[in-house]
């Protein structure tokens, strides 16, 4: 979808949402509060211990910030696809197939909720505060890796969201199932994935590649060892993984649409 059309649609949705001003700001506040609460959890845990899986407080907060920004971006721009299940149930998904734009982009634009911007606010502040506080010998590679990680993280989260939402074309009540990978993923990626048992760790590395969202790259930046059996170049593989996730997500979404068009449900 051309960016200009997307912009127009998003602006209109923002105008519409703004009509319920009180609720809009309360919602925005609650979104900000959710990611704030995630940070408070990290801070509280570190009042009891000085490290988690050998990661220090600032290092975990660094993970929190990278994961939170990536997730916040995906939440703002892509999470709307999750509504596909509600549209299918209500019979309103047809409308998306009647317009000369891809259904995915229409959902993203037409269901755009500016209040979700609140999600990324807290992580951005934390990143700004924590970067100078990290005990890191900054090299050009490490500096470049920070923005790359944020972007790739957002893309991977977005791809997970699209993939999980594609389930809606086959299962009536799939939204919650999708949530365990998206919101669950947001929760998980705030911590060193090393803490998981071995098979769950493998699952989040190779099947649903959330470990690439921030854990692998951040481990390189803060000089934490990767778990055994994970090659060190995984720290730089996020762009490739992001691209592959997009290819898979796109294919599954299209498959879902094709299934919908042949079954009508």
């Amino acid at each position: 979808m051309p960016l200009r059309i997307y912009g127009h649609l998003v602006a209109a949705k923002t105008r519409a949402d703004f009509q319920y001003r009180t609720s809009f700001f309360l919602y925005l506040a609650s979104q900000t509060l959710i990611s704030f609460a995630d940070m408070v959890v990290v801070l509280i845990l570190f009042t009891q211990v000085s490290s988690i899986a050998s990661w220090s407080r600032s290092q975990v907060l660094f993970l929190y910030a990278l994961s939170g920004i990536g997730f916040g971006l995906a939440d703002l721009f892509i999470s709307q696809v999750g509504l596909v299940s509600r549209h299918i149930k209500a019979g309103t998904f047809d409308q998306f197939l009647l317009r000369p734009l891809g259904a995915l982009w229409q959902l993203s634009a037409l269901e755009f909720a500016p209040r979700r911007a609140g999600r990324a606010v807290q992580p951005v502040i934390v990143l700004a505060v924590i970067l100078p506080a990290l005990d890191v010998q900054w090299t050009p590679v490490k500096v470049a890796l920070v923005p790359i990680t944020v972007v790739c993280g957002a893309v991977i989260f977005g791809a997970v969201w699209v993939t999980a939402s594609s389930l809606a074309f086959y299962l009536v009540n799939s939204q919650e199932l999708a949530n365990s990978f998206t919101y669950g993923g947001s929760f998980l990626t705030q911590y060193p994935i090393d803490i998981l048992g071995p098979w769950l760790r493998r699952f989040f590395t190779f099947a649903v590649p959330l470990a690439f969202v921030c854990y692998f790259p951040a481990a390189y930046i803060v000089d934490q060892p990767l778990p055994e059996s994970i090659p060190s170049w995984f720290s730089f593989a996020a762009p490739v993984i992001a691209l592959a996730s997009v290819v898979v997500a796109r294919a599954l979404w299209r498959l879902g649409i094709r299934h919908y068009r042949s079954t009508g449900s």
């Binding site: 845990l45 009891q48 211990v49 000085s50 490290s51 988690i52 899986a53 299962l171 009540n173 799939s174 939204q175 919650e176 199932l177 949530n179 365990s180 669950g184 929760f187 998980l188 911590y191 060193p192 803490i195 998981l196 048992g197 769950l200």
Partner: peptide, 23 residues
């Protein structure tokens, strides 16, 4: 689907708490 989600979140939280209790 909901029970699955509750279970996944339970697992993730449990691992985080275990990492804390390791100390």
């Amino acid at each position: 689907a909901g029970a699955f989600t509750n279970t996944v979140f339970g697992l993730l939280s449990a691992y985080i708490l275990l990492a804390v209790y390791a100390q």
